[in-house]
Write a protein that binds this DNA or RNA. Structure first.
Lengths: 193, 193
DNA sequence: GTCTATACTACGATAGAC
DNA sequence: GTCTATCGTAGTATAGAC
């Protein structure tokens, strides 16, 4: 729906008319469901982030050590990003396009921010626990979080550029498998003590 | 100038009027210098990428081993991204916003693509040489490239989100130093054999 | 809940005077 | 090389009939 449009061209690049056509409504009908364009955008972002949060949450509660938990968390995140092509771009935009957006954020956008926070707090705790247990090296946790986001969200948001770089479609099952292996292997050697 | 505007709001989010005001011209005068908005955008992107390419190129020709070269390359890239706040965002956008852009690309955009290619070929060769020499583990080179882009370009493009995550300004000298250390340390343990 | 019609603003782009 | 004026389109948003 609107997800794919916002993912491709961003908030400013998509018109309400275009969204309305794609969902088979008149433009004014769309304004009946969403008071402003920002409300629509907020709902799209919130939905996407909610989905991601649901997918990665279980990995943090399994009965296993920090290294194994991190592997499962990465598997879940990468699977979620790979299954829906628009998700990573939308997510990356919501991280990078934060400025200029508000005056005051819509409730949906606040819900999206809570989802991001929940995801981050979860893996933040995992990393700290691993470091405390001596399983992980004593790295900077915020910087490691940024690296993880870059290695996953950026990767699956890179679209045609990523396709060309890899020589194969980013979202092909083979390349998704290789991505998981690449990220986990880097962390297994670079993060695990 | 226009760099900061496009970095903040992307191609569609910036109007020619706004750019003209910021450079102290009338809108029509701007169209005299750039036939279309796409030509202006292309020139901005090409200039930014050219600057980056100039900065990172020397690191690949120093007289040192692959691991040391990679360290110098990362230092140069991170310094370049940190010095000009708009650069990383613009670069990330140019990677992620590739679709829908053309019918046919402007000459400036083609020049920008050559700069990207040149940067990538350089570090691609460095990684392959390191693997062949047994200095680096036998990782997937394209996936490592994506990881490097994510760890650097995404990080410095993350703006307010990154500031909050780190708890300090992303571009402060202290956090830039920590970023270099975090990335190089991850690679030293995770990539170097 | 969806429609037509409309208001108003901004957009990219062009023409032509200076 | 910069300006004013203008074109045509599309932008967000609202009012009101059905």
């Amino acid at each position: 729906m609107a997800e794919a449009l916002f993912a491709r061209r961003g908030f400013a690049g998509v018109g309400m008319r275009e969204v309305a056509d794609v969902v088979g409504l008149g433009k004014s009908s769309l304004f009946h469901h969403f008071k402003t364009k920002l409300h629509l955008y907020g709902e799209v972002i919130a939905r996407v982030l909610g989905r991601i949060e649901e997918r990665v949450r279980p990995a943090l509660t399994i009965d296993a050590g920090p290294a194994e938990k991190l592997d499962r968390w990465l598997d879940a995140l990468i699977d979620a990003l790979a299954e829906q092509p628009a998700t990573a771009r939308l997510l990356l935009r919501s991280l990078v396009e934060d400025e200029d957006m508000p005056p005051e954020p819509t409730p949906e956008i606040e819900s999206a921010e809570r989802a991001i926070e929940s995801i981050l707090i979860g893996v933040d705790g995992l990393l700290r626990a691993g470091i405390e247990a001596g399983v992980f090296r004593a790295v900077s946790v915020p910087h490691m979080l940024q690296t993880l986001i870059g290695a996953t969200v950026y990767h699956f948001a890179s679209g045609e550029f990523g396709d060309e770089l890899l020589g194969h479609p980013l979202l092909s099952t083979e390349e998704v498998r290789r991505r998981k292996e690449a990220v986990k292997s880097l962390l297994h050697h670079g993060l695990v003590a």
